[in-house]
Nucleic acid binder design. Sequence first.
DNA 1: GTCCCTATACTCGGATAGCAAGTGTCCGAGTATAGGCGG
DNA 2: CCGCCTATACTCGGACACTTGCTATCCGAGTATAGGGAC
Lengths: 162, 162
Amino acid sequence: MRLGEGVEWALHCTTVLAFLPADGALPAARLAEYHAVPAAYLAKHLQALSRAGIVESARGPKGGYRLSRPPAEITLLEVVEAVEGPESSFRCTEIRQQGPTKCAPRSYSPVCAIAGVMREADMAWRDRLAQTSVGDIAAGVASDVSAEVAAKAAAWFEEVLT
Amino acid sequence: MRLGEGVEWALHCTTVLAFLPADGALPAARLAEYHAVPAAYLAKHLQALSRAGIVESARGPKGGYRLSRPPAEITLLEVVEAVEGPESSFRCTEIRQQGPTKCAPRSYSPVCAIAGVMREADMAWRDRLAQTSVGDIAAGVASDVSAEVAAKAAAWFEEVLT
DNA sequence: GTCCCTATACTCGGATAGCAAGTGTCCGAGTATAGGCGG
DNA sequence: CCGCCTATACTCGGACACTTGCTATCCGAGTATAGGGAC
């Protein structure tokens, strides 16, 4: 099981966007520069966030991306699912109903015992992600960040938003 | 995030092996036949289970695979990790320490807030899988299975183990 | 009749191709801005 | 001097190559068994 790195990028980007003033916007190229990742590829994932209604985009000069809702109302689960897809990690292909012991479908319990546990594990994972919002993350980094990093970040914002 | 189908196969195979008598053994080809999956590819995953110490193998005639421990002492987490690998689903590449705001490593909190939550979600997933054993699964299917399927399975075991 | 030896057949194990999905990149569509022109 | 128009430059959005890892397969290494021969 492996998550694409786009998930990490999307989470960090939404966190950065949470610090934007309400009328501001950051282009994909700036977000990529901030995290030192390929701009063209990051754009692909930002489009996914846009389609999911997590961020909204504005074209033209002074355009870019901004959060479409208050950070506290965006859960990490939404961001992850927007990039990675909403389907469960485990896919049950019902192999218990195959082979030499095959019977009519009504002879089997409605859900495979294995698939049931795997699904519960998946729910536990999603529940944890749904309990934390982008606002929580932003508050956490705001309180933990060193003065040096905070100053650099503030200067960068100042320069980019002009 | 997507798990390989080898995980499903491995879980079902260990469940079937849980019903074997202590001195019995099932070859990979029989396990593949039982689930109607490609034998050569299933063998690859059974090798992973063998390397992880979950099953033990015997070569030659009357050989095959058997569980190396009582089913109740094998958790689903062990089986999943044996096939899929033990590494976490989320990989933090510390992009927060990159780009124009880069500072010395000591300026950052030891763990990224995002990586922390992702890790906790991963732990929740693993915890759920660790709470259920192969024995639990076997007991569940034994009580839920229909008489028709049970009879077919018993007949198949009888024929194969002779 | 019993024991031993050998040939056999069956098993696992790792090394080898094929393919799909994630990764990375590019160019076209659309729009707010800035400058120039006319009134 | 003010308002409008146009050209520009900057943005997003989807369509196009490349690489990694999962999927699938094969053949060689190893061993318990079964049969035959010698004592």
